[in-house]
């Protein structure tokens, strides 16, 4: 029996890894997270619904694993080491060198987004999932996905000087720009 599932899993490794790097902000942790995700995926293969997006299913497993990990660390009082020098786009709030900033400023802006906005940016804009698929992964209503996503993108526009003209949003009525 050809193991299509396993082959698809291997083919998705680069994308799993990218999402993991973005979630964990650390390449080492990301590789662990990818491994865990694959283990869980293989162990729960029977729960995957054929015909649905495998990447979305895997992202969900990955994100839940990461949340469990963060939660466990919080209760244990230990800290996740996010200070990984190899992480491409720096870390939240940390001063980064100008050279690095120039290298890939969008990545920098993405990295500096709050977690809930960053993950929705990744899922929708980078990995091209639908709002519905993102909402399922994040276990929030579609409206929440949309408001986080819009907020994240407005922030990136502002930081990158993308001219959006006069804007009007539901949660900042009356304010211009």
């Amino acid at each position: 029996m050809a193991d299509d599932f396993g082959q698809q899993l291997i083919a998705l490794l680069p994308r799993l890894r990218r999402f993991a790097v973005s979630l964990t902000r650390s390449r080492d942790l990301a590789d662990d997270l990818v491994q865990i995700t694959c283990e869980k995926a293989l162990a729960n293969q029977h729960t995957y619904e054929a015909g649905t997006r495998l990447d979305a299913w895997l992202f969900r497993i990955m994100r839940n694993s990461w949340i469990d990990r963060v939660r466990r660390n919080t209760t244990e009082g230990t800290k996740i080491d996010v200070d990984d020098a190899h992480y491409l786009v720096g870390q939240d709030g940390a001063a980064v060198t100008e050279a690095r900033l120039m290298l890939n400023s969008t990545a920098e802006h993405l990295a500096n987004l709050p977690d809930d906005q960053r993950e929705v940016m990744l899922l929708v804009c980078v990995d091209e999932l639908s709002y519905r698929e993102a909402a399922d992964i994040l276990e929030v209503p579609i409206g929440t996905v949309m408001s986080r996503l819009a907020r994240a993108r407005k922030k990136i526009m502002a930081e990158m000087g993308i001219d959006a003209g006069t804007t009007r949003s539901e949660d900042e009525k009356g304010s211009v720009r």
């Binding site: 291997i10 890894r17 990218r18 590789d31 786009v89 969008t106 993405l110 804009c125 980078v126 993308i162």
Partner: peptide, 29 residues
Amino acid sequence: TRLKSQEALKPLLDEPVPEALRRKVEGLV
């Protein structure tokens, strides 16, 4: 913003998957 985000994280996708990770997952499969 969508386009720029995709471009920004494209390099991560192009990176080769670390040998150790790839081998582990292949072993799992």
